[in-house]
């Protein structure tokens, strides 16, 4: 690392002024979001500070067990976040189970793949590489999984008559649900595709700008970013396919019937 400007608490206080201005605007315009805004900002500060402490501890030890534990906790939180975003979740533990299983499989495969091939740190589980990489892949995988499941469960409820019409004519569950499955995967992958298309023109990705601010040569930062974008699309794709196909299995049965009773509240919104 060649020189970078370290931030002092006073520097952060300057930034926090902007959040206070937002809260003030909410008060005088009666938006009613100032409490949530301040709570979210405080959560962000606390969560990131804790993460900083955890990372500092992890980096100083380079233990596979502590790294694995951190990774598992991150995955469980990602699963919870993906589940919380569903309008019509699967009933019981299935929503959390399918989401978390898909996220953990996709994120683990992609992260380990990158660590053992492209990046190749020594040891490969070096938390300085593994944890930030997993974090970025997890975020996108979680988005893909939650969008895919969301579109699937909404789709089967709204298009129930269309799906059953095909079942009535002797279609298999995959044939009858084909259009819904395609919609679900498309909407799961759209953010990644849009993200890749806009990167560099409209947006400068956070990781790359972070590296540049940290003193890394722009071309090196760009190469990292390209690799990361590929990993993100891989994670979102594998995660969404796993989650959507898992959801399809739960929403149908081996007699190829549509089982909306497996949605929480039987598929009705209220």
């Amino acid at each position: 690392m060649t020189g970078y400007i370290a931030l002092t608490p006073l520097d952060l206080a300057w930034g926090a002024c902007l959040v206070l201005i937002n809260a003030f605007l909410s008060l005088i315009l009666d938006l009613g979001i100032h409490r949530r805004l301040l709570i979210a900002a405080s959560r962000m500060v606390v969560q990131l500070s804790l993460m900083g402490l955890v990372l500092a501890a992890l980096f100083s030890h380079v233990s596979p067990w502590w790294t694995a534990l951190a990774a598992i906790l991150m995955i469980l939180f990602a699963g919870r976040e993906a589940t919380a975003r569903q309008d019509r979740p699967l009933g019981g533990w299935w929503s959390y189970g399918v989401g978390t299983a898909a996220i953990s499989m996709a994120a683990t495969v992609v992260t380990v793949f990158a660590l053992t091939t492209a990046l190749g740190p020594d040891p490969w589980y070096d938390p300085r590489y593994a944890i930030p990489l997993l974090g970025m892949v997890l975020g996108n995988t979680m988005n893909g999984v939650s969008l895919g499941l969301h579109t699937l469960t909404n789709g089967v409820v709204l298009r129930r008559a269309a799906v059953e019409a095909r079942l009535m004519l002797g279609a298999t569950r995959m044939e009858a649900l084909g259009p819904v499955i395609r919609d679900s995967l498309r909407s799961a992958l759209m953010p990644v595709i849009n993200g890749m298309a806009a990167t560099g023109l409209v947006t400068l990705p956070g990781m790359m700008t972070g590296q540049i601010l940290g003193g890394v040569a722009p071309m090196d930062a760009v190469k990292y970013q390209i690799l990361v974008m590929f990993l993100l699309s891989g994670g979102a794709g594998i995660g969404a396919v796993t989650a959507v196909l898992g959801g399809v299995r739960r929403l149908t049965d081996n007699r190829h019937r549509l089982r909306l009773d497996h949605l929480a509240r039987g598929g009705s919104l209220f």
Partner: peptide, 19 residues
């Protein structure tokens, strides 16, 4: 199998669906 059975036993619901 379910689909085989439903090819033999057709069903016209009161509100048929279109896909």
């Amino acid at each position: 199998a379910g689909p085989q059975w439903r090819r033999l036993v057709g069903y016209l619901p009161a509100e048929p669906g279109w896909w």
